[in-house]
Design a protein around this nucleic acid. Sequence first.
RNA 1: GGGGAGGUGGCGGAGCGGUCAAUCGCAGCAGACUGUAAAUCUGCCGCCCUAGUGGCUACGGAGGUUCGAACCCUCCCCUCCCCA
Length: 388
Amino acid sequence: MSSPFRFTLKATDGSARLGELTTPHGVVQTPAFMPVGTQGAVKATRHRDVEEAGAEIILANTYHLFLRPGDELIARRGGLHRFIGWNHPILTDSGGFQVFSLAERCVVTDDGADFRSHLDGSRHLLTPARAVDIQARLGSDIAMVLDECLAYPATREDVAQSMRRSAQWAARCRERLTQLRSRSVDGVTVTNPCQAQFGIVQGGIFQDLRDESIGATVAVGFEGYAIGGLSVGEPIDVMYKVVADTAARLPETQPRYLMGTGMPADLVECVARGIDLFDCVLPTRNARNGQLFTSEGRLNIKNARYTEDDRPLDPRCGCYTCRTHSRAYLRHLYLAGEMTAGALNTLHNLSFYLDTMRRIRDAIAFRTFDSFRQEFVRSASRLSPQDS
RNA sequence: GGGGAGGUGGCGGAGCGGUCAAUCGCAGCAGACUGUAAAUCUGCCGCCCUAGUGGCUACGGAGGUUCGAACCCUCCCCUCCCCA
């Protein structure tokens, strides 16, 4: 079967790459940012707004959808795309991050992650094969292998052991997907026969361990490679260094996905180091918590200084929120606890992130990425936009 | 007119002799958030300052009892409820 999954490099500018990711549910221009829709919804928004903001792909989560409403229920409804009504590409995370974020309810062994559900306390063993099966039922366009994400700081020994376990899990995940593709497994509905699978490089901040992880993961052979285990508390310059050195050693012809990053300036900096795909909860979570990203820096709509500010969040933004509403009104909505505040703020932050990605792609295409990067990092890193 | 309840920091509302500048909630002020158990969490929140086991003024008002009162007593002022 010829896979409709394909990655095409269209141009480069330094280490920055302009590409195109073709999936069963559409094409994604890269570098791309994937809004996080853990439970099959980008929180506080409708898909319409996510599309309008410019998203071409979203992320959903294996662990959450497995627990509720259940991957088999979703498979019976024709898969995740049909169930949630999003007809564009979807990447599903494997639940690996929950090994990290729900660590106190999870015991990791070489077999997999033994979770106690955060919903009802029930126990579930998430094995590499199980993570693959669940994602096969969901039918996402890109499935991630199960991995273990450690907190920072971690000892070299712990990171090495964890990385090797993740590498073994990656091999098992690939093996399972191969079985599913050859239809040699009963009882698993493969909703999307052309689902791609990405491996995940671990190794913390130890480059030799990263190198070992790259070797093992690339040897298995995936449609794309992710860098995991970063943006977990390490210093930003360390993160940049690991990204640069790791991305440089990954196969040039395949997409590179930096998991869980980051602030707007981080996106630009990591594109500069060879990353093609990003996801992060910051634009959506911070929007719900009143922090907005603008071309002039971060803005906290709760601050009293915006009480009578008639300007839009960002005068250079063309999103519905900025076209229609003032900071004064958005502050009022937020303080009044209106749900609309979360929706409008999320639309803006996603628009800002996705517009940033668009500008990044343009800059690479015009080979002006480096000057774009310098200018962007200077303005976006401010804590608050200048007054009047 | 008769009977009853009560007046505490912006609001609501604890406290009923010392450890009370006073629990808590709301409101207010600021901060955090990075493959989402998060429309969440944290700090501050009488006044002053060199921001502290610091100073000052405080629990309707005025007196009093006591080593010590938001808490007990007396009087006054003011609310609310029930019956006429």
